[in-house]
Design a protein around this nucleic acid. Structure first.
Lengths: 206, 206
DNA sequence: TGTACATCAGTGAACGCGCGTTCACTGATGTAC
DNA sequence: TGTACATCAGTGAACGCGCGTTCACTGATGTAC
């Protein structure tokens, strides 16, 4: 914080306007929190008094950590439910991508808590971990598909996850953009671009 | 909000714990806000009284809208500053990607305000628009590069932006993941994957 | 079979905090006469 | 050259709000004797 400042000279009042914007810019060099639901809001939703929460959680942080862990379990369950371990690796990759993207778009608040705020949230929860678990899962499928091996497969898995995350995030936050097509189609196209598989349309032409 | 609920029976106190988590899940089906700096925090940073802000902005929303517009201008300026219109389209694409990603990672709070909250923020600002401006810019370069045409070029541009956004977003929020490599390298690899250009390493092997 | 009592599942009032906003004000500075 | 006055750039106290948390309490229910 700056010291108490002297008033600007007459005619230079607009200085302050610029200073305010610049100060805000300074504050924005560190990441912002995405605010979880408040303890009181959750209690209201259940129909219980705010103090009732403390019968089960030591603090708001503990409550939110439990919520986040539950959401992560849900996402994992959704992915497991649509996976067919016996199917072709490429089909499994595509199914995983579709499920991931759909789940994220259908649970925007949960997705934000898991992947757009993790490291700023209560330490009790891993908030979807560091992301390594997801990266590893994708990388394993890439390896099975055979389009890349070893470290290169891990990189490809990482990039696929990055692209899928970008898709979910922008669909959540920029719903008014000219997306022109379903998110599922985009998910498939992103996967194919990264494993070097021809697009569905191109494959049909052959 | 639910009605005032009856107490659980003895021994079933844990019910409430589950209900709280489930209620939070319900609240999370709508997107959460990423909180901008508070008016008072900005005023503190400048060293001015909170009421001083109202000499220049009618409300906090107006202030934040001005901040967001200023950040968007900065991003545009950064992109313009590194663009060499006479260069090869692929090089221009790669330079754009690098600049975009670097700016986002260096200005996490600003990036979040522009691309991870836009539609929930004050209507006065377009908060980085709907994203169409960026998509169009990338698509124009894709078209110049010639790897896709017309609507397909627009889709490719869209996917490149999606992937770059995913990269920035995850680097901001999951700094502890095993990224193994610089964000700039990842940016280049993502662009190449989407325009069908061989990786730098592969190109060298020939 | 009755009754005292411990335990359980919660309530309600109060606290201090930071917030956005309003409103009457203050002190310096330029301008008209 | 002096002085009254308008204007400018801000201040400071107060407001009502929702928040997380604490703490003494309440009422129902099971258990021991």
């Amino acid at each position: 914080m700056a010291q108490r400042r002297a008033a600007n000279r007459r005619g230079e009042g607009d200085q302050l306007r610029l200073e305010l914007i610049r100060a805000a810019t300074d504050l924005l060099v560190q990441p912002r929190q995405v605010s979880p639901p408040s303890l009181r809001a959750i209690a209201r939703e259940v129909g219980v008094s705010p103090s009732g929460v403390y019968l089960h959680f030591a603090s708001q942080d503990d409550l939110i950590a439990a919520v986040i862990d539950a959401q992560y379990d849900e996402l994992r369950a959704a992915l497991a439910a649509t996976d067919k371990p016996a199917a072709e690796p490429l089909d499994r990759l595509l199914a995983m991508a579709r499920t991931y993207v759909r789940w994220g778009i259908d649970h925007p608040g949960a997705y934000q808590l898991l992947f757009e705020s993790a490291d700023a949230l209560p330490a009790g929860s891993m908030a979807g971990g560091t992301g390594d678990e997801i990266m590893d899962g994708v990388a394993a499928l890439v390896r099975a598909h055979g389009s890349a091996r070893g470290a290169e497969a891990r990189h490809t898995g990482m990039r696929i996850w990055i692209a899928l995350h970008g898709l979910v995030s922008l669909r959540i936050h920029k719903p008014h953009a000219s997306w022109a097509g379903s998110a599922e189609r985009d998910a498939a196209a992103l996967v194919r671009a990264h494993v070097g598989a021809p697009s569905a349309a191109a494959a049909r032409k052959r």
